[in-house]
């Protein structure tokens, strides 16, 4: 979407990364993420799936450099992600946009923060707002926007500088069909451009259609799935894996009935 010189071939490496969300002592309460090992080269598109509370957002905070691992390391092209945040785009699950700013002001300001000023910065902001269809409400306060509109503004900010690593925590949530298509197109463009994208989703078809690496999270542990080539097989694998990890309440859809229907 936006032209910018990137690292020749970025790579993301999680090496035995461990994180307890409330600090190392909080591990006593039960939940701890990791240890996670993952290596992604340029052009990797990683789908992260798992039941609610399985540690996806904690892992995303680690990968985006928002928090540091308690042990192990997370590096982007050999440097700790925390020092590479200017090359990372991050869309958190929950909005963190100031309600008193407008999308246009946010994009202009973000462009300035990455060192793009004047016409170049304005161009970056304009392109991002246009791609994510935000021009109609670019001068409205964020506090007045709907959830879907805020999500699009968040996506515009995350992709503004065409980052080497794009981390999207449940990006499809609250988007309408047209903008889901735009997001799918952007992720595919990044894959072809040799950039890394990591996203979480609960929509099996999105993961199956876009990702070339799939991670399944459960109780803070990540398992890399043996991804079949066929998209339908991927969806079936994900549904089976998901329903086995988080069985539905009695009376609702059960893994066995799903298998029987197939």
């Amino acid at each position: 979407m936006v032209e910018r010189k990137s690292i020749a071939s970025p790579n993301l490496i999680l090496s035995a990364a461990v994180k307890a969300p409330g600090g190392p002592d909080a591990a006593r309460d039960g939940f701890r993420l990791g240890p996670i090992d993952l290596t992604c080269g340029g052009g990797s598109t990683v789908a992260v799936l798992g039941p609610n509370g399985s540690g996806k957002s904690t892992m995303f905070n680690l990968v985006a450099g928002q928090t540091q691992p308690d042990s192990g390391s997370v590096t982007l092209s050999g440097s700790p992600v925390r020092s590479m945040r200017a090359r990372i785009g991050y869309l958190p699950q929950q909005g963190m946009l100031p309600p008193w700013a407008t999308p246009r002001e946010l994009c202009d300001y973000s462009a300035r923060l990455i060192g793009a000023t004047g016409p170049h910065g304005s161009g970056l902001a304009e392109n991002a707002l246009r791609y994510w269809d935000c021009l109609d409400f670019q001068h409205s306060l964020v506090g007045n926007l709907s959830t879907g509109m805020r999500k699009r503004v968040g996506l515009a900010l995350a992709t503004l500088h065409n980052p080497d690593l794009l981390v999207l925590d449940e990006p499809f949530e609250a988007l309408d069909l047209g903008h889901i298509a735009a997001l799918r197109q952007e992720i595919q463009r990044r894959t072809h451009a040799g950039l890394i994208t990591v996203f979480a989703t609960h929509i099996a078809s999105c993961a199956a259609g876009l990702a070339n690496v799939a991670l399944f999270m459960g109780n803070g542990q990540a398992t890399q799935l043996d991804w079949p080539a066929d998209e339908q097989s991927r969806i079936a694998m994900l549904e089976k894996k998901f329903l086995a990890a988080a069985p539905p309440p009695p009376g609702l859809l059960h893994p066995d009935s799903l298998q029987a229907s197939q």
Binding site: Q66, R85, A86, G89, Y90, M96, S110, A158
Partner: peptide, 8 residues
């Protein structure tokens, strides 16, 4: 989290 943190 302040959104600026995503920009370093």
């Amino acid at each position: 989290l302040p959104f600026e943190e995503a920009f370093g």
